[in-house]
Design a protein around this nucleic acid. Sequence first.
DNA 1: GCCAACGTTGGC
DNA 2: GCCAACGTTGGC
Length: 141
Amino acid sequence: MAKKYWLMKSEPEVFSIIDLEREGRTLWEGVRNYQARNFMMNDMSIGDEVLFYHSNAEPPGVAGIATVSGKAVHDPTDKEKKPTWYCVEVKFVRKFASVLPLGELKKNKKLAKMPLLQRGQRLSVQPVSPAEFKEVLEMAK
DNA sequence: GCCAACGTTGGC
DNA sequence: GCCAACGTTGGC
């Protein structure tokens, strides 16, 4: 299967790219949105690449790159009676020299269709097209 | 099934 | 801290 690309949001006060760098791998636990869960359960494959996004941050933006390193497993923080929430494991790849701010992404017309930049978009796990992923890497240089 | 109320996300 | 956007809940 062709490699796919994603954007995953984390509040750096809770878990930042630096935490991921230190820990190497982490379970992406705590997602409580069905659409985001379904992306992790059904659509992610090991080796997919991930833009690590800092939300609620100064500045908000893409902080680095990770890869999917483990298929979806039951979220250990799930407190539902029946298993409901699942999460993948992600592995650190690299941290950008500086966060690529949301404001810069907005200025790039090639990224206009990214889910992240759509009005009211709050989804914490989102697909990114190969072209968009490449463009973000280019901007981060 | 509708929809108002409420809670959360996340940029500003 | 504000508030728009969106998801969920629950009464009916």
